[in-house]
Simulated assay, not measured.
Amino acid sequence: MATSSTTSAEGPWFIAEQSALDFINTQAWAEQGTHDFWHSDEDVKNWLQQSGLGKLPATFIAKPGELLAEARKLRALILQLVEEKKSGQTPSLMQLNDYLAQAQSFLQVNTDAEGALQIQRLYQQDTPLRALAPVAEQAAELITHGQFEFVRQCEHPECILWFYDRTKAHRRRWCSMALCGNRAKVARFRAKS
């Protein structure tokens, strides 16, 4: 699963240090307002592959736009759950459980590049809901086991990105220094001038 600080100007970025948060970060702030990085089923497929949560098989079946619609629906749900949990509310879990019920997976033992044995969970991803099941599982893991004092929204006043602060001192303030941290430094510098 992608949890590294991968950034490019185009995005979406994998900077949240948690896959479900990276999933909701596929909507971000831009000069003209909120920008959605997903415009097609292909965009969602690419995100799933880049995140390490699945490469959709040739048997994948969906009407055009169906994967995009389901991904946007799940993204809104995960954002709602994170906001509820962060504010101290008990999250509404029924819809998440509906996504989790779609998961069909099995374990497989493989060897890695060095020949060491490893267990890998493989998902059946032949429909949009099944394709998104690994994301729902990441959201369930976050909601149930995440330390929400370390789940934060970027402190830049216009940024809407979330992250899981895994730094040693737990003082991370920005979604990314390259995206918002430097903007804040420049703004402070200009204010002093």
Rank of each mutant, 00 (worst) to 15 (best):
L74C: 05
F60H: 14
R72Q: 14
A69P: 05
W38G: 02
E17Q: 11
R72W: 00
D22Q: 12
A30Y: 12
F14A: 06
E42I: 15
G65L: 08
D22K: 03
E42S: 15
Q27V: 10
S19V: 14
R75K: 05
Q32R: 12
A30W: 08
T34V: 15
K63R: 14
G54V: 07
A62M: 09
A16N: 12
L79N: 03
T59C: 00
I15L: 15
T34K: 12
K85C: 00
K85R: 15
T34E: 13
D36M: 07
E42F: 15
A16Q: 07
I78E: 02
T26F: 03
A71W: 02
H39R: 14
A20H: 09
K55S: 13
K55E: 14
Q18S: 01
Q18T: 05
S40C: 05
L67H: 09
I24L: 02
K45E: 01
D41Q: 05
A76Y: 00
W29A: 14
T59A: 00
D22T: 15
A30K: 10
G54N: 08
Q27P: 01
G33P: 04
E83Q: 03
A58Y: 12
K45F: 04
G88Q: 06
S87C: 05
I24C: 01
W47Y: 10
Q27M: 09
R72M: 06
S19G: 13
K55Y: 13
F23V: 03
S87N: 14
G54I: 01
E83G: 00
Q80A: 02
I15K: 10
Q18Y: 01
D22R: 13
I24A: 00
L48A: 02
E66D: 14
I78Y: 06
R72S: 10
